[in-house]
Amino acid sequence: MFSLVGVPPDEARGETEARGPARSPGSGRGTSHGRQAVGGEGGAGDDTDGVALPPVTVTLIWIVVALVAIGLYLSWTAGRLDRLHSRIDASRAALDAQLLRRASVTQELATSGVLDPAASIVLYEAAHAARQAEEEQREVAESELSAALRAVFGEVAQVEAVREVPGGEDAAEELAQAVRRVPMARRFHNDSVRAARALRRHRKVRWFRLAGHAPFPLAFEMDDEPPTALADRPGT
């Protein structure tokens, strides 16, 4: 469309007439259509000189080009945002799974009779509260479970005691894995939340409402420090 308008009218007419017979019927129809369009434009402006288009048309073309470019950019940004939102959903699901796993293993250990009664009650209470917590209370309840786990498994001796009973090796390993993966999953989740927030705060996203009705992403803040006896890794 642009290329047809872009051809200077005189030259275009001359060329189509000269080449017309040599062309196939299909392309001939196309060019004659083009000639009409160009002729109409040329009649409104100056069709004698080499400079063809009136400034208004040139400006219009540029506006159209700019609008298309902006449209593409916005659609690409919306795609980015969409991808970030689905990343948040996935990372949140992973975090939920790890938290649930940690609470289940804790509850299992608490009811197994391996630990002394006081430790069992503390762990059971905390794990139960974490699993039952409403969404607003969740971060607090999970932090309390972390604190309870640290209190009970702060000493290597306690972990060894769990490992010695039949089946305790697996339980201790599963708990160690769970307490290590919760901080990992939380870090990944909060990282995706940060990336989405950074993009959503941008002018282009706010002005054009590219985020739609998606809720503003919230980070999951909790105390996830694992008990030292279960996870002695540097730095993580």
């Binding site: 996935a90 990372s91 699901a93 992973a94 799974a97 790890q98 894995q177 290590r180 993966r181 990992m184 999953a185 990944f188």
Partner: peptide, 10 residues
Amino acid sequence: SVYETVTHGA
């Protein structure tokens, strides 16, 4: 562990 965390449900 990292692989399993990110592939969970994805």
